[in-house]
Design a protein around this nucleic acid. Structure first.
Lengths: 156, 156
DNA sequence: GTGTACTTACTCGGATACCGGTTGTCCGAGTGGATGGGG
DNA sequence: CCCCATCCACTCGGACAACCGGTATCCGAGTAAGTACAC
């Protein structure tokens, strides 16, 4: 059970976009972290589809945050890249057991499914409660000049 | 980010093993849920390596729970099959950014890594707090004759 | 000097290969019970 | 009737393929800025 690499990249990029404000080309973000530009572009496209980022084409274009940093949760980013379905998928194998209904959906009644779903819900709740603004505040507390340095490195 | 199918199978099998008490062949468990026997066997082997199940060879052999159901948490099963490493892996891309140390390990200082790890810790805590005995109790509360039916179907 | 049309370089966007990991399958090593013979 | 050696069927265990999703890459469509020219 591993999460896609793109999630880490997207989170760092979103944080930087929150500090820059102006559109930043995907290639410049990729160069900043020494990442494959084309692949990072793919992840950013997913963020655009999810309504987290806006993309402006042409010269002086790039990606920028579509909402306020406080209105983008870590869960939003994770869901945008990993999809909305949960990690544990109940396939209702109880339906194949003796006395089970093969056509029934046990995901809402199977105790195992409920327990796994409950745990995953706790994970999602933690991610949903933490916004980009919260993370940015933590970074600033530790390194107050980080936003300025990022702006200097990424702004045109 | 999807969890392996084997986790669901292993959880159901462990619950049944807790009710049966005696060794149950992997093939019989597989037939109970109409699963590929050889592949389920692979998952059960992982449980044995993790010390969750014991395996007895020869006729009248099979798999049985190695500890009391109350001493096996859902997290134990998940870790046995999915591995101990966490879903979100911090690759310290901050080290590649300007002003970063490429050789340093940022997984303990990067605010993003800390937030993701905190959320995953909440998930693990939920799973660790729920044992097979707890889940079994929930099932019995909903269907009191489940243990007897399982014994009748799986016991030799 | 100013407005306009063109050129151009730069951006995103989707379609296309590659690879590791989960999924699925197979056969061999080992073991406990059943069986047949002998005492 | 009891004991023992043999045989055998049954089990796990690890080694071997197949399929799928994440990884990585490329080139084309579209756009806005810059430029040259005509008025």
């Amino acid at each position: 059970m591993r999460m896609g690499q793109g999630v880490e990249w997207a989170l760092h990029c979103c944080l930087n976009l929150a500090w820059v404000g102006a559109p930043v080309p995907g290639a410049r973000l990729a160069g900043h972290y020494d990442l494959p530009a084309a692949y990072l572009n793919k992840q950013l496209q997913a963020l655009v589809r999810a309504g987290i980022c806006d993309s402006v084409p042409g010269p002086r274009g790039g990606f920028r945050l579509a909402r306020e940093p406080g209105a983008v949760s870590l869960l939003d980013v994770v869901v945008a890249l990993e999809g909305p379905e949960e990690a544990f998928r109940c396939t209702s194998i109880l339906g194949a057991a003796p006395g089970g209904d093969p056509a029934a959906d046990y995901s809402g009644s199977c105790a195992i499914s409920l327990s796994m779903r409950s745990a995953e819900l706790a994970w999602r709740r933690e991610l949903a409660a933490r916004s980009l603004a919260d993370v940015a505040a933590d970074v600033v507390r530790h390194a107050p000049d980080a936003p300025q340095r990022v702006r200097a490195a990424l702004a045109p």
